[in-house]
Simulated scan of single mutants.
Amino acid sequence: MGLRLFACVCLCLTVAFPVSAQQKAEESKLLPIDEAGKDPSWVNFRNRLVNALAKRDRKFVLSIVDRNIRNSLDSPRGVAAFRKQWDFDAEESPVWRELSAALFLGSAWLKPEKGPRQLCAPYVAVKWPEDIDPFDHGAIISREVLVKAGPSSESATLATLSYDIVPVPDWEVTDQAPEAKQKWVKIKLKEVDGFVPEEQIRSPVEHRACFVKTESGWRLMELVVGIEK
């Protein structure tokens, strides 16, 4: 009888005080994956594309862009729109940085409502938990990331995180040292603010690149921001 009463009380408390989104995030992890990592054609293609991006090889990049590429969730499709959106002919086009960053992490398969399944990099958006707000959280993408008390490598270490999903109040924080180029992201650890280097955390609504394997090879089908399942 006592055990039944205890179980009933616990159930009532769970219903009365449901777990908040922040509590879920504090308990959640997004482990790294690469679902096409054993496909030799993908590995070879990705390596060639990464090298082309490093060399800013416009000819190769355009050769793998699908003619009907999706450039954002609500803008025109096509190569001309891709070139315009990314200021592709400029020396400092952001496409070199954003596409390289997307390919740095592993990939995951996504099946759109229409068309063939796509391989998307990074995996973060595709595998993001549906019950955690993607706009207010981020995923730690490395092991044993040091969480600092302030935006500086000299600040005290509050904790270490590995692949945790954390609340993010601020995505752009400058280093405390005026001459430092390091950028930081402000995160929440329970009720305490902490800071991690920007390259060690990823938002699910950052750019993702999705590819389809065709008879003529891999094609870039979309390079967009946002999240959709």
Rank of each mutant, 00 (worst) to 15 (best):
3 L>M: 10
4 R>E: 14
9 V>C: 05
17 F>N: 12
20 S>C: 00
21 A>V: 14
23 Q>Y: 09
24 K>S: 11
25 A>M: 09
25 A>I: 03
25 A>W: 04
25 A>G: 13
27 E>D: 12
28 S>H: 07
29 K>P: 00
30 L>E: 04
31 L>T: 09
32 P>D: 06
32 P>G: 10
32 P>F: 03
35 E>R: 05
36 A>K: 01
37 G>Y: 09
37 G>M: 10
39 D>W: 00
40 P>N: 06
40 P>R: 05
41 S>F: 02
44 N>R: 12
45 F>R: 02
46 R>K: 15
47 N>T: 13
50 V>Q: 10
50 V>H: 03
51 N>Q: 15
53 L>T: 02
54 A>C: 07
55 K>R: 15
55 K>W: 11
62 L>Y: 09
69 I>D: 02
70 R>K: 14
73 L>W: 12
74 D>V: 08
75 S>F: 08
76 P>H: 10
77 R>H: 13
78 G>I: 00
79 V>R: 02
83 R>D: 04
86 W>D: 01
87 D>W: 08
87 D>R: 14
88 F>M: 08
88 F>D: 00
90 A>R: 15
90 A>I: 09
93 S>A: 12
95 V>G: 01
95 V>L: 08
95 V>I: 14
98 E>A: 09
103 L>F: 06
104 F>G: 08
106 G>C: 07
109 W>D: 06
110 L>G: 00
110 L>K: 07
112 P>R: 08
112 P>Q: 08
113 E>C: 07
114 K>D: 13
114 K>C: 06
119 L>I: 08
122 P>E: 02
122 P>F: 03
123 Y>F: 06
123 Y>W: 06
124 V>M: 04
124 V>I: 15
125 A>Q: 01
126 V>A: 09
126 V>D: 00
128 W>Q: 04
129 P>W: 02
129 P>Q: 05
129 P>S: 06
129 P>F: 03
131 D>Q: 12
132 I>K: 09
133 D>S: 14
135 F>H: 12
136 D>P: 04
138 G>R: 00
141 I>P: 01
142 S>Y: 15
144 E>V: 06
148 K>Y: 14
151 P>Q: 03
151 P>G: 06
154 E>T: 09
155 S>C: 13
156 A>I: 07
157 T>V: 15
157 T>W: 00
157 T>E: 11
158 L>Y: 06
160 T>Q: 14
161 L>V: 12
162 S>P: 06
162 S>F: 13
166 V>E: 03
166 V>I: 13
169 P>G: 11
170 D>V: 13
171 W>G: 00
174 T>K: 15
175 D>Y: 04
177 A>R: 15
178 P>R: 10
181 K>I: 11
181 K>M: 12
182 Q>A: 13
182 Q>S: 11
184 W>F: 02
186 K>I: 03
186 K>H: 05
186 K>D: 00
189 L>E: 00
192 V>L: 14
196 V>G: 04
196 V>W: 03
197 P>T: 04
200 Q>F: 10
200 Q>E: 14
202 R>I: 08
204 P>V: 02
205 V>L: 06
208 R>I: 14
208 R>K: 13
209 A>M: 02
212 V>F: 08
214 T>L: 10
214 T>V: 07
221 M>G: 01
222 E>G: 01
223 L>P: 01
226 G>E: 04
226 G>A: 05
229 K>L: 13
